[in-house]
Amino acid sequence: GLPPGWRKIHDAAGTYYWHVPSGSTQWQRPTW
């Protein structure tokens, strides 16, 4: 699974990851 606080988001551009507490997003899968 993903580290705490991360969500996987799907949209028209593809899949990305959202860090809910900080509001940051990234294309790379977050690592622990």
Score class of each variant (00 low, 15 high):
residue 8 K to E: 15
residue 28 Q to A: 11
residue 11 D to A: 13
residue 2 L to W: 03
residue 1 G to E: 13
residue 11 D to P: 00
residue 13 A to D: 11
residue 16 Y to G: 05
residue 16 Y to H: 04
residue 2 L to V: 03
residue 7 R to N: 05
residue 23 G to S: 04
residue 23 G to H: 03
residue 9 I to E: 04
residue 28 Q to D: 14
residue 30 P to F: 03
residue 25 T to F: 15
residue 9 I to H: 05
residue 3 P to K: 01
residue 2 L to K: 06
residue 27 W to S: 12
residue 3 P to N: 00
residue 5 G to R: 01
residue 2 L to G: 01
residue 32 W to L: 10
residue 13 A to Q: 13
residue 8 K to D: 05
residue 27 W to R: 14
residue 31 T to W: 08
residue 22 S to A: 03
residue 24 S to Q: 15
residue 14 G to Y: 08
residue 17 Y to M: 00
residue 31 T to H: 09
residue 27 W to M: 13
residue 6 W to G: 03
residue 27 W to G: 06
residue 14 G to V: 07
residue 20 V to D: 07
residue 22 S to T: 13
residue 19 H to S: 03
residue 10 H to I: 15
residue 1 G to M: 13
residue 16 Y to P: 00
residue 31 T to V: 12
residue 28 Q to Y: 09
residue 30 P to E: 03
residue 24 S to F: 15
residue 6 W to L: 00
residue 25 T to Y: 13
residue 18 W to T: 09
residue 3 P to T: 00
residue 2 L to N: 01
residue 30 P to L: 03
residue 26 Q to Y: 05
residue 8 K to S: 08
residue 17 Y to N: 00
residue 31 T to F: 08
residue 28 Q to E: 15
residue 22 S to P: 03
residue 30 P to K: 00
residue 22 S to I: 02
residue 28 Q to T: 13
residue 2 L to H: 01
residue 4 P to D: 08
residue 23 G to T: 01
residue 12 A to Q: 10
residue 1 G to T: 12
residue 32 W to M: 11
residue 20 V to I: 12
residue 12 A to S: 12
residue 18 W to I: 15
residue 20 V to A: 11
residue 8 K to V: 15
residue 17 Y to R: 00
residue 26 Q to H: 05
residue 11 D to V: 11
residue 7 R to Q: 09
residue 19 H to K: 04
residue 19 H to N: 01
residue 18 W to H: 10
residue 11 D to N: 13
residue 10 H to P: 05
residue 23 G to M: 06
residue 19 H to T: 01
residue 2 L to I: 05
residue 23 G to E: 04
residue 25 T to E: 06
residue 18 W to R: 09
residue 4 P to I: 05
residue 22 S to F: 03
residue 9 I to R: 05
residue 21 P to S: 07
residue 21 P to D: 09
residue 9 I to T: 03
residue 26 Q to E: 06
residue 14 G to K: 07
residue 17 Y to K: 02
residue 9 I to Q: 05
residue 31 T to L: 12
residue 16 Y to K: 06
residue 16 Y to D: 00
residue 27 W to E: 09
residue 32 W to K: 07
residue 27 W to H: 10
residue 10 H to D: 13
residue 30 P to G: 05
residue 27 W to L: 13
residue 5 G to P: 05
residue 27 W to A: 12
residue 26 Q to D: 03
residue 19 H to Q: 00
residue 2 L to Y: 04
residue 2 L to M: 06
residue 4 P to K: 06
residue 25 T to I: 15
residue 32 W to S: 09
residue 9 I to G: 04
residue 24 S to V: 15
residue 15 T to D: 12
residue 15 T to K: 04
residue 19 H to G: 00
residue 10 H to E: 15
residue 12 A to R: 10
residue 29 R to V: 13
residue 5 G to A: 01
residue 10 H to A: 12
residue 20 V to S: 08
residue 17 Y to G: 00
residue 23 G to I: 01
residue 2 L to D: 09
residue 13 A to L: 14
residue 5 G to I: 01
residue 18 W to V: 15
residue 12 A to I: 10
residue 8 K to P: 06
residue 12 A to N: 10
residue 29 R to D: 07
residue 22 S to H: 03
residue 7 R to F: 11
residue 27 W to V: 13
residue 1 G to P: 13
